[in-house]
């Protein structure tokens, strides 16, 4: 795993881990069906490469102001160290918020379908409910054993209760984003949730609580709780069916995931060990897109 050097004087608390990985021990030949999925989200851009429908490499980077460039950056990041070129890819599917702006893609597919497929790949056929918490929206998806979507709900009223909202809170409380989940659990008693998950109002409310003498941990717990309540509501709307999994950047926020489990009274399937060698739930959409890319390539070959 390669990490970018991050020795800046000004600490950017919201900044999360951009990285790429090539799965060890896997080799490709020109006979293989090599496909890619590029998921350009509002905050993160992810690309995944698959060999014959099995994960080979991926890259996760921050989305810039320009979708086509972010798509290219993510895909180049995923290709790094594989010896593959874009021209070796048999089929590329673009997905996510910026999917129509993925210039190298053969096709664009909505992220709902890709997330369900990707979650099915990561956790297996027992997955029935997928909560995807992205940078600027939350999706609750119900899927069957093949990863086909049977019901979905997208909540994009505002950035409330999303990854971007968490970044704003990380900055406000001066807590690195990757520690925010653990820190939100370092409390003796769960405080009542903040009354509004709207980032702008919640920020004002949080500053008021800090002034009242609440600890950072407690304020963070109150905000995280409010987000988790909102997410649990969405899941209930589409209908909770076990097994439940969380994808997207916030799947790494243990504060969110553990609170959702408490509210809904179910356990989520265990998080893959993405820091070591496991698949990363943040790449679920890109993996799903790469799987569809393989299926579409094979379909084209037949016709």
């Amino acid at each position: 795993m390669k990490e970018p050097s991050n020795l800046k004087e000004d600490v950017e608390y919201w900044r999360w881990h951009e990285y790429h990985r090539v799965v060890e021990g896997k080799k490709w030949t020109s006979k293989d069906i090599i496909t890619a999925g590029v998921d350009v989200g509002s905050v993160g851009s992810k690309a995944a490469i698959m060999i014959n429908g099995e994960a080979y490499s991926w890259g996760i980077t921050r989305t810039g102001s320009n979708s086509p460039e972010s798509a290219k950056k993510a895909l180049d990041f995923a290709l790094e160290g594989t010896g593959l070129k874009v021209s070796d890819l048999k089929y590329i599917v673009g997905t996510g918020y910026g999917r129509v702006n993925v210039p190298m893609a053969n096709k664009a597919i909505t992220e709902i379908a890709c997330h369900a497929k990707g979650a099915n790949y990561i956790w297996g056929p027992s997955v029935r409910t997928v909560l995807d918490v992205g940078g600027q929206d939350i999706k609750a998806i119900r899927a069957d054993e093949t990863g086909r979507v049977v019901s979905f709900l997208m909540n994009d009223k505002c950035a409330a209760g999303t990854g971007r909202g968490m970044e704003v809170f990380a900055d406000l409380l001066k807590i690195p984003i990757e520690e925010i989940g653990d820190i939100s659990l370092k409390i003796e008693e769960e405080p009542p949730p903040v009354s509004c998950t709207c980032v702008a109002f919640a920020k004002t409310e949080a500053m008021g609580l800090l002034r009242k003498g609440w600890s950072k941990e407690k304020v963070l717990a109150a905000y995280t709780r409010a987000m988790a309540v909102r997410m649990a509501n969405l899941i209930n709307r589409v209908g909770l069916e076990k097994e439940l999994v969380v994808t997207g950047g916030q799947s790494k926020n243990i504060g969110i995931v553990s609170r959702i489990e408490v509210i809904l009274g179910v356990k989520t399937l265990p998080m893959p060990k993405w820091r070591e060698s496991g698949l990363d739930p943040m790449v679920a959409g890109a993996l799903g897109a790469a799987l569809f890319a393989k299926a579409l390539y094979e379909k084209d070959q037949k016709s």
């Binding site: 049977v150 979905f152 909540n155 009223k157 509004c196 709307r237």
Partner: peptide, 17 residues
């Protein structure tokens, strides 16, 4: 095979829509 149902809208403090 189950039909694919899409939901558009939101739940907020005032109700569900």
């Amino acid at each position: 095979m189950k039909n694919m149902i899409t939901h558009y809208g939101y739940t907020d403090g005032s109700g569900e829509y």
